[in-house]
Amino acid sequence: MRLRNLIYLLAGLFLVGACETMEEKGSAQGIGELKAKSIGELKAKTYGGQVTKKPQGFSITPGSGRDFVVNVGDRVFFAVDKSNLSSEARAMLEKQAAWLKRYGNVNVTIQGHCDERGTREYNLGLGERRANSAKDLLVAMGISPNRIKTISYGKERPAALGHSEASWHQNRRAVTVIAGG
């Protein structure tokens, strides 16, 4: 239990840092270099860059979007041109399903994304396929399909900049976003 609190604290700190960067630069600086950092840190940063505007200190409301991102993990990754789920991706989605079962009134949108090494229109289709394979697994684990929307952004909304596999890997993803969170 103590350990858990420590993680909360650390994650919160990272979040503050990430948000400050965003506000200062108004751009994605700092998020380009994501390579060798821990998963938790990475998620916090990217999430902060995408959605939040202001750091809210250390308290995380259970059942909130931040709770989901920090304590569960909001995204799974895919291989080049693929939409099938790796064992890690499955494990992550299982955790997501468990969380969604605990907070049964929360709805989500799964965003499908691609790296920049494809053509725009095909990537829209591929992103939709990725979002859907994540959705299918959540549904298979008992989450009602009515709670899950999907949207594809193709290659329009990268999470990591940079023109190498390290960044591309971060971008081939399906992100579960808590509605209103």
Partner: peptide, 9 residues
């Protein structure tokens, strides 16, 4: 045009 639904375009 294309329509994508349920993972199929």
């Amino acid at each position: 045009m294309s329509m994508a639904k349920d993972g199929n375009t």
